[in-house]
Write a protein that binds this DNA or RNA. Structure first.
Length: 208
DNA sequence: GCGACAG
DNA sequence: ATCTTGTCGC
């Protein structure tokens, strides 16, 4: 079964994430992309890349440090049409950023692929109200009188995630897609599996 | 000037 | 992000 988002049928959803080692003299950034089928959320393909970071981590500039490696990994995905992602979830913010340019907006724009920002903590803004404990509960993320995203409780007794538009996906649609990709863990499958893949790439990088 | 600050 | 095993709580 195929479901519709604001721009077309979604058959595959990708998740991307980065892993790195602290105190690494080489400043290596290990990137991973995992493509899952919808609605099964079965891993269809995975690609990774290890690149040298050209920038340190600076809040507000995460994309400039991580996007380069993610682009290399993305380019390594099998190019067959039946593996091209229709949507990508990024570990980090979309427009819930001081200049509306979080890593999800950054990567989404460069790839011109619908993107959603799935962050584990706030960069700017505050929840509009206390977030209920019940899984699925949401509350707007406000900053300077503007709504930048949604605070979403994905799991009982777990800190909420901050969801925001990345590229060509509406705010409400973004939240719904994250909800649909939850499988009992705090993180939605795309981002959760990408995190595991990025760590695996970090280990592999020790010998190739 | 001080505190905050995705990954 | 990462360092790290067991452990306290639901």
């Amino acid at each position: 079964m195929v479901r519709e988002d604001a721009h077309g049928p979604v058959h595959r959803i990708a998740g991307v994430d980065i892993s790195s080692t602290r105190f690494d003299p080489a400043n290596l950034v290990h990137a991973a992309v995992v493509v899952l089928s919808w609605p099964e959320l079965t891993p269809l393909a995975t690609a990774a890349a290890t690149e040298r970071a050209t920038m340190p981590y600076i809040p507000g500039y995460l994309g400039f440090r991580e996007v380069p490696a993610l682009l290399v990994a993305w380019q390594r995905l099998a190019t067959t049409p039946d593996l091209v992602p229709d949507l990508v979830m990024v570990d980090g913010h979309g427009v819930a950023h001081p200049r509306g340019l979080g890593i999800a907006a950054h990567l989404g724009a460069l790839l011109d692929v619908p993107a959603i920002g799935v962050a584990k903590s706030v960069l700017v803004g505050r929840p509009a109200a206390p977030l209920p404990e019940e899984p699925g509960a949401t509350v707007p993320l406000l900053w300077k009188g503007r709504r930048l995203g949604t605070v979403l409780r994905t799991k009982r007794r777990s800190n909420p995630l901050i969801i925001s538009t990345g590229h060509r996906v509406g705010e409400a649609s973004a939240v719904e897609w994250v909800r649909r990709c939850l499988r009992g863990y705090r993180l939605p499958e795309p981002t959760r599996l990408a995190h595991l893949a990025a760590n695996a790439e970090r280990c592999d990088a020790h010998g190739g």
